[in-house]
Amino acid sequence: MKALLSTAPGGPETLALAEIDAPIARDGELLVEVRACGINYPDVLIIEDRYQFKPQRPFAPGCEVAGVVTGIGAGVTDWAIGDRVVATVGHGGLAEQVAVPAAMAFHLPPDRDFAQGAALLLTYATTIHALLDRGRLAAGETLLVLGAAGGVGLAAIELGKAQDATVVAAVSSEEKAAAARKAGADTVIVYPRAPFDKAQSKAVAAMFKAAVGPNGADVIYDPVGGDYAEPALRSIAWAGRYLVVGFPAGIPALPLNLTLLKSCDVCGVFWGAFAAREPAANRAHIERLFHLWETKRIAPVVTERFPLARGGDAIARLGARGAIGKLVVEIGGS
């Protein structure tokens, strides 16, 4: 089978399309013919050896797939050959076939597009866990979303509105602002590009404070990090919750005196560990996501589709922080 392989640490240009042996479904696994693979920020990091998990090379990146079940391992129930599936894996998704843990696989309804299916789990499951479990977002509260036009950012807007919160979306361009408005944001602000000096940081903080209102943001969803984190934290409400989701702009050093003054929480969000530790709770969240998708409260936004041979281009585009919505690599049959 064909796979896009990382054979040495480096950027997307180091990936190479190659023929490798197909996997088999071991105990507790499904073998999936991959039709689409969503591209996520861990794919940027894992090929550079900057992710917390470092698989043995050669390996294919890609941790979110949609496809068709072609094999079933021992001990697996509730699945049949030919079933449509969405699943998460540590890596291996940028290939024609992949073995996935059945515990991390979910049935894809017949009326749903494979590419949209491959854009659902990591962004929306991360976000629903973040907002409900870690952020305890309640109806009527104010949610500030940084990086609001990316995959997780748009998911946060939609899920925030589904929770009846007021959503303030922060983005870096007018094009991204249009995407945030389309997703349902109540207010959209366009912040400047980092890095910031002290005066610029204060100006961005003032921008956030004006947008969220005098009471501050009850929940801040931050998948960006870097120089944006401190200005956002300065806009938090009393007893607010700051959700740490990712760091494409760099790992920030937050002034902890602000957390004392606002009596706020800084909460890490690690969906993969949550899903492994609390599978029943995770499955309940994903069932809720499918219901919200069916009732049109959420809709995964796939803005660009790439063939397998150009999977490295998709990773490069995401790494450059130019993507709006989700990038998906399409593989195999229709």
Rank of each mutant, 00 (worst) to 15 (best):
S172C: 04
L45S: 04
T295W: 02
R321I: 06
M207G: 10
M104T: 13
A323L: 12
P192L: 05
R241W: 00
Q200Y: 00
F106Q: 06
Q52T: 15
V167R: 04
S334E: 15
G319K: 03
I39G: 01
L120S: 09
K198I: 04
D186Y: 02
T14I: 15
N40K: 04
V204I: 11
A155I: 10
G332C: 05
A194P: 15
K202D: 11
D43S: 04
K262G: 04
V328P: 00
L108C: 08
G28A: 06
R35D: 01
A299Q: 15
I298C: 08
E304W: 02
R283W: 00
S334L: 09
S263M: 12
G240A: 09
S201V: 00
A299M: 15
A165R: 06
L146T: 09
K202S: 08
P9E: 11
T142R: 11
M104I: 02
A179S: 11
P195K: 06
E96A: 11
E141P: 06
F114H: 09
R234C: 01
A178G: 07
W271Y: 14
L256G: 12
G38L: 12
W271M: 08
R112F: 06
I157N: 02
I331L: 13
A316C: 06
T70P: 10
A138H: 15
A316G: 12
R136H: 14
H107G: 03
L5H: 07
Y221Q: 00
A237H: 11
L15S: 12
G333D: 03
I157G: 03
L30D: 06
Q52K: 12
A179E: 05
Q116V: 05
A276C: 00
E174H: 14
T77P: 03
A179K: 01
D49W: 01
T7C: 10
M104F: 14
L94R: 07
V204P: 07
A199I: 08
F247H: 11
A316K: 14
V204Q: 09
V76E: 07
G117F: 01
Y51L: 08
A309K: 13
W271L: 06
R234D: 11
R134N: 02
V65Q: 00
V171D: 04
Q116N: 07
L256V: 15
G38C: 09
G117V: 03
C37Y: 05
A80Y: 03
E64V: 06
I20N: 05
D222M: 02
P110K: 14
E174S: 13
C264N: 06
I81V: 14
L94M: 14
E141Q: 15
L258H: 11
R321G: 02
D265A: 12
V68F: 08
L45P: 04
F274A: 07
G82I: 07
I236W: 12
G311M: 10
R317H: 14
G62E: 08
G153M: 02
G333T: 01
I220S: 13
M1L: 14
P101G: 10
E29F: 00
F208A: 11
A249S: 08
G184Q: 02
R136F: 09
V65L: 06
V69N: 02
A323E: 14
V302Q: 02
G312C: 13
V212L: 04
A16R: 15
H285V: 01
G216D: 13
M104H: 13
L17D: 14
Q116T: 11
I20Y: 08
A169I: 13
E96P: 12
P9W: 08
V76S: 07
L31R: 09
G322V: 10
G250F: 04
G11H: 07
A22D: 15
P300Q: 05
N257G: 05
A237F: 13
